[in-house]
């Protein structure tokens, strides 16, 4: 099938996703990822800590863990869709970072993403494809933040690449 042989034009792909996001907005709310990831974090923490999780007020006040939170399933869907796409186009293979510095850089990056999402109460997807199109004041502040952060991150990244 042609679809699995050729790379899709990203402008077409994102336009299609935007149209689907409009339906999601009408049914449930705009596309978001960070909320579902937080709920997954809570569920994992609950499975490890059990009742002790209640000693951390965040998980009883802001995000009481529950498995029927729809945003979780967007992320699981993305994982499934990408796996199917990669498998059917014969692009699935295990890729592992080679150097210790790469593992470290990704680890720090992941930590900053997790802390940043929770500090802001939103992620990059909500910023670009939710808040900004709703013209929420938070969208403009968030975009200023993420562009400034990406610029600083790029400086670090360049230094690491060159160093």
């Amino acid at each position: 099938m042609e679809f699995f042989r050729k790379t899709l034009d990203p402008v077409f792909a994102l336009a299609t996703i935007a149209v689907l996001d409009v339906f999601l907005f009408l049914l449930l709310g705009a596309w978001t990822v960070g909320g579902g990831e937080t709920m997954m974090t809570g569920l994992i923490a609950q499975s490890v800590l059990g009742e002790d999780l209640q000693r951390i007020p965040f998980w009883s006040i802001v995000f009481p863990p529950r498995a029927d939170y729809w945003k979780i399933y967007i992320s699981l869907g993305m994982l499934t869709g990408a796996f199917l796409g990669a498998t059917l186009s014969k692009e699935f293979y295990l890729r592992t970072p080679r150097r210790t510095s790469e593992w470290l850089m990704i680890m720090v990056g992941g930590l900053l993403m997790g802390i940043g999402i929770r500090l802001a109460y939103i992620c990059n997807v909500s910023t670009f494809f939710g808040l900004l199109p709703e013209m929420n004041l938070g969208g403009y502040l968030a975009i200023s933040g993420i562009v400034a952060g990406a610029w600083v991150g790029s400086l670090f990244y360049k230094k690491i690449l060159e160093g």
Partner: peptide, 24 residues
């Protein structure tokens, strides 16, 4: 916090080479 959080996120996503979507 919206600005500060996404600022940290912006640095993080460049270092990690992926954002919330592309990690999945």
């Amino acid at each position: 916090n919206t600005f500060a959080g996404l600022f940290l996120f912006g640095i993080g996503m460049v270092l990690a080479g992926a954002c919330t979507v592309s990690t999945w």
